[in-house]
Amino acid sequence: MNALLKFSSAVDCLNSFVGRYIKWLILAAVLVSAGNATTRYMFNIASNAMLELQWYLFAAVFTFAAGYVLKVNEHVRIDVMSQRMSPRTRNWIDFFGLLLFVLPVTLYITLQSIPNLVETYINQEVSANAGGLIRWPVRAMIPIGFGLLFLQGLSELVKRWAFLKGLIEDPLAHGGHATVSMDDEKEKA
């Protein structure tokens, strides 16, 4: 189990690194968008490449950050229900959800997207839009992003199992699953 927890820690570090730096692509997308709008309205110069670059940057943020979001427990959940469950019940639900849904789906998407990426790269596919960008970089985001999400899913599965075995603290104690006590709810009311 110690080797699995070390693997989990390494994956957590990888996705934390990605999560810490991927946010700068949002600033880049805003600057590209502002620059494109400025040149379009002030100088009547439009660029499909700049529009596509915005989409590429947004796609990179969305796909690459998914593993980080899973790591910090901020993905979509039904907190109203989960707050009322015991930590063991929440971790069992997560364990089976990760095992039966997250891992198979992310692995499938990762593996199925690779041939498309290879074909796009070999053919040097370019956007159909005039002045558009090459497609392989955006196609590479799918296996990379879902690969990171798959690895984080494995990491979370290890942490859930370790918690259920009593080896670590509750990995769901922070983030979207943080427990709200009834006293906290009364104070808010």
Score class of each variant (00 low, 15 high):
90 R>A: 07
68 Y>T: 09
73 N>P: 04
170 D>Y: 04
143 P>D: 03
114 I>S: 01
17 F>I: 05
54 Q>F: 06
10 A>Y: 10
79 D>M: 02
86 S>R: 08
105 V>L: 03
136 W>A: 15
143 P>M: 03
95 F>A: 13
53 L>V: 09
93 I>K: 04
61 V>I: 11
105 V>Q: 02
172 L>V: 06
9 S>C: 00
125 E>M: 05
70 L>F: 10
177 H>N: 15
61 V>D: 00
27 L>F: 12
15 N>A: 01
2 N>T: 08
111 L>V: 15
133 L>K: 02
148 L>N: 00
121 Y>F: 12
83 Q>T: 11
79 D>S: 09
119 E>A: 14
6 K>I: 02
160 R>N: 11
116 N>C: 06
24 W>P: 03
88 R>E: 14
123 N>M: 11
148 L>V: 07
137 P>C: 08
153 G>R: 01
126 V>A: 04
169 E>W: 00
21 Y>A: 13
114 I>W: 05
3 A>E: 14
143 P>A: 06
55 W>T: 11
125 E>P: 07
182 M>P: 02
141 M>C: 15
18 V>Y: 03
114 I>K: 04
92 W>H: 09
49 A>P: 01
110 T>H: 01
119 E>F: 05
112 Q>T: 11
2 N>D: 12
109 I>N: 12
120 T>E: 06
78 I>G: 01
125 E>S: 15
146 F>Y: 12
119 E>C: 05
8 S>R: 01
154 L>W: 09
139 R>D: 14
180 V>W: 00
43 F>R: 09
80 V>D: 11
119 E>V: 08
121 Y>N: 11
31 L>D: 02
49 A>R: 07
163 F>R: 12
115 P>I: 12
176 G>F: 08
150 F>P: 07
175 G>L: 15
57 L>S: 12
42 M>E: 12
184 D>M: 13
60 A>D: 06
152 Q>M: 09
167 L>M: 06
55 W>S: 10
134 I>L: 15
140 A>D: 04
3 A>W: 11
86 S>V: 09
176 G>Y: 11
46 A>D: 12
22 I>G: 02
65 A>G: 13
25 L>I: 03
66 A>L: 14
